[in-house]
Design a protein around this nucleic acid. Structure first.
Lengths: 191, 191
DNA sequence: ACCTTTCTGTAGTAACCACTATATATATAG
DNA sequence: CTATATATATAGTGGTTACTACAGAAAGGT
């Protein structure tokens, strides 16, 4: 059991430094010499998570030409990633700092900012598809981006409630019904 | 500030007994005489929440003849209730026990069971509409119920991230696009 | 008016929290 | 082989946790 798994399973505050040292296999002074303090270790864990388990969304989005197909692929990937048996369910960024004291307000804010950044990136990707004519003019880019964010947060929480991959895949498929269809009149305008 | 508001804002574990006694305006011995312990107080708070702030969903569902219209009304109500400025954002049952130690596993399980019960009730309501012919035969009742549960969980989390009423209302409207249309051939079969 | 009963407030309990001072062992340099 | 430097482990720091023993005040009965 690694520090990542502990934080992923239970969140930031419920995991004690004693559990972290036991998980990593070092003693407290070594942990503080290597990372600084508990919060700094958590930030490193989040960074590592983003580059590995948390990268599926951007990867899926980049793998498709249209943002619609990209989101569809990403939501399906989320259903799979959130329910892998080899690691805790759901998403670390979504679920690790929901219940925090004032002493950890900066950690709460760190993850909140991460989520906001992700939604902003998706919104810009949608806006690009609208200007390129792949999505209808007048499409509510922000609304669609927020909808995807909400679906992801809901899927993460539901995975932590014990939902299986198939259940979340069905949610992903249903969610795509809320998206306007692709406009394929102009396959590629600028390439 | 009441005990309900404290638990609603930050969750079960981050709220200390000292804060609860300050919020209620009593001393620790009085709190333990009146409620038993912190967990028992929380259970009473949850019960009270369900009968007041948490009742909007069942109320909205019962206010419409078809479950489709009921869910649409309930999701709009959620957007409003989750963002009321006079109380903490989101839903207590969804967000109060996300990050817990093993010592509070029973509290986590209590809220998880509440959520499961709500989804089950909705599923049965959907199944009733399918047998009554208000929804197409072969409708995936469980899938739709889970979808609504996921949307609610996502809306609650997003409200806690600072989303406004309008933003969540747009999510509610978009989510209904994933629902099959009403079948109004038979207005009322058994009434 | 006096006694009893209930209720509340102060102060303190052991256990755990993040974190660290000191001492010891290990590794490298000469 | 010795000296120095680094890294480790033990043990403990003050502070906070949920919870409670005990003392004092208010209320009620006669």
């Amino acid at each position: 059991m690694t520090a990542l798994h502990e934080f992923w399973q239970r969140g930031f505050e419920p995991v004690s430094v004693a559990e972290l040292t036991a998980a990593i296999g070092i003693t407290p002074p070594s942990l503080y010499a290597a990372f600084g303090d508990k919060k700094a270790l958590f930030r490193e864990v989040v960074e590592r998570y983003q580059q590995t388990h948390g990268a599926f969304f951007a990867t899926a989005l980049a793998a498709e030409k249209s943002v619609r197909d990209g989101v569809a692929r990403a939501l399906r990937a989320a259903a799979v990633e959130y329910t892998r048996p080899e690691h805790p369910p759901g998403c670390l960024v979504i679920s690790a700092a929901v219940n925090c004291t004032a002493a950890s307000a900066d950690i709460t804010e760190l993850l909140r900012a991460q989520r906001a950044t992700n939604i902003t990136a998706l919104r810009k990707r949608i806006e690009a598809d609208v200007t390129d004519g792949r999505l209808p003019a007048g499409t509510d880019a922000d609304g669609l981006a927020v909808l995807v964010g909400v679906i992801l947060q809901g899927m993460s929480q539901h995975a932590r409630d014990g939902a299986g991959t198939d259940e979340l895949l069905a949610v992903a498929e249903a969610a795509m019904l809320a998206w306007p269809a692709n406009v394929n009149a102009k396959p590629l305008t600028a390439a």
